[in-house]
Amino acid sequence: MKADPALSALRLFAGARLDPQANAVPLAIAFSGGADSTALLLAALHLWGPQRLHALHVHHGLQTDADRFAEHARGLCASWGVPCSVLRVQIPARPGESLEDAARGARYTALTNAAGKLGSRWLLLGHQADDQAESLLLALLRGAGPKGLAGMPAVASRAGLWLGRPLLSCAADSLRHMLDVQGVPYVRDAMNLDPAFRRSRIRHELLPVLARLEPSWRATLTRAASLCAQASAGIEELAQQDLARCEGPEGLRLAALRALPEARLSEVLRLWLRQSGLRSNHGQIVNLCRQVRATARGAVALQVRLGQGLVERRGPWLALSAGTYVSGHCGLHDAHEGSGCL
């Protein structure tokens, strides 16, 4: 059987990214049983054989077909001689967080934990070009900046593990067609058709319109995401330098923050909060910048609550409340990482 176009894309990815000498190290593959992850697993099987692979299937119980999907994953992997672990997760309910975001977070925590226990250095994901386009459009509709509009990176790191997306150049319909021609079974997730999810509506309502307006929409949106990733990397590099100059033993020096131009001030604060494990939105950053500026005019009180964290003024310092600050990066360490696309 041939696994083109997935095999071609995986060959290119592996040649550029993976250590050819590390044949003894297992490669973990996120395997939902859908067309994309099936195409990726089949390509990996052709490239490396079953002995180097381990499929990881997440069972989060969000739909009645979850048990059937898990059995399909086990059965197909057994027929190919690939070990398969089914990971059962609970979706936490957090105020203000969407079900999609909560499920994504739980899924990737389970996948990275399982891959780490296997001794894997890489977790391969089946995201393809249509997924990248949808992520870019979702970020655009949220009003995201360059970091969010960078979409999903081909490579990122999380919890000491490399995450790879070899199929970002592959169209979804080409992967499905390849599997259909070869008679390879895959599951179809009804949630992908549910109009309650914005991503589903983009896929089925907006992308067909884009295809009529611009036949090469995949390549165009991929190029836009790549340009935003480059811009984001430059912005973050400058923010890292500014942050290093502002940091001190008790937080950030207010005088150093006030000396920064507005755009650089907002990026430093956003980076500082992200490295501290706190999420922030545009309005919160604008408010925090305003209060930092106000300290130059004698304002003493400065207090902004972000989730479980509290940002406040302590004399000449901008500090986080006790027990909140965690030095260094939290989890993701990739300059091109999009917001919540993993």
Rank of each mutant, 00 (worst) to 15 (best):
Q284H: 14
V187H: 05
S200W: 01
E71R: 11
T222K: 05
D189M: 05
L252G: 06
D65C: 08
G96M: 01
G340T: 00
L257Y: 07
A39G: 10
L7G: 09
L342Y: 00
R74K: 15
S32N: 08
A319N: 03
A196T: 14
L252H: 04
Q90Y: 05
L163P: 01
D101W: 00
L123T: 01
S8N: 13
A103S: 04
E262A: 15
R121A: 12
R188F: 03
D334I: 05
A35H: 02
L288K: 06
H59I: 02
R52C: 09
W48G: 04
Q303S: 13
L207E: 04
G15H: 02
Q21V: 10
N113Q: 11
L111V: 00
D189K: 14
C341L: 10
L238C: 13
E100S: 01
A231N: 04
Q284F: 04
A30Y: 00
A114Y: 01
A255L: 13
S276T: 02
D334V: 12
R270Y: 02
I91Q: 06
N192C: 08
C289A: 12
G116P: 03
R201M: 04
E337P: 03
M191T: 10
V187C: 09
T109C: 00
A139P: 08
R258K: 06
D194K: 10
W272Q: 08
R158G: 05
H59C: 05
L53D: 01
G151W: 03
P95S: 14
L288P: 13
V268H: 03
I202F: 07
G298D: 04
A154I: 06
G298E: 04
K2E: 10
Q51N: 12
T64G: 06
S232F: 07
A225Q: 08
E262C: 13
Q132K: 06
L278Q: 11
Q21P: 03
G151C: 05
S135L: 03
P316Y: 05
R158H: 11
V209M: 07
L168W: 08
A28L: 02
W272D: 05
S169E: 07
A16Q: 13
L12G: 11
A229N: 10
E237Q: 12
A110W: 00
A30C: 03
P208Q: 09
Q240K: 09
L193E: 13
Q51C: 10
P5H: 09
G81V: 07
P146S: 13
R270L: 07
R158W: 03
V86C: 01
H333D: 14
L53M: 05
V89Y: 01
W122H: 13
R305E: 13
V155M: 07
A256N: 13
L243I: 12
L137Q: 05
G248T: 03
P20R: 14
S339N: 15
P20S: 08
Q182M: 08
P20K: 11
A70E: 04
I202M: 09
S120Y: 00
G315A: 15
L87E: 02
A102G: 06
L136S: 06
P208V: 06
R279D: 14
E134A: 13
A115W: 01
Q240V: 09
A172E: 08
L306Y: 09
G160T: 03
